[in-house]
Amino acid sequence: MAKIIGAIEVDVEKCKGCGVCIPACPTDVILLAKNVNGKGYHYAYMEKPEACIGCTNCAVVCPDGVISVYKVKMAN
C-alpha cells in the first residue's frame, strides 16, 4: 500500500495561536511554539512532522486560513 506523507506550512506572522487546529489533528502533529511571532502570538508548528497525513483538517478549521497543506504518495 502506498504511504501518504503530508506536511503543513503555517503563515507564522498571520497565525494568532488560537490552538483550534490542535484538537482537529487526528495524529497530534501540531503544537503551539514556545517562540512568538511579531504580534506576540505563539504560532502553530509541526511538532511531529513524520505523523502528518495531509488530511487538511487543521487548514479547514483554521479561522485565519494561515495553514497550507501538502501531500505526496510514496510508493513502497
Partner: peptide
Amino acid sequence: IIKPENLVYQKTKLMTDAPLSYCPG
C-alpha cells in the same frame, strides 16, 4: 513535500491577504 505540485489545500484567492481583524479562534 512542500512544493506547489503537492499542494492540497490553501486559503482561497477570494480571501484577501489582509490579516483578519477578529480575535484568535
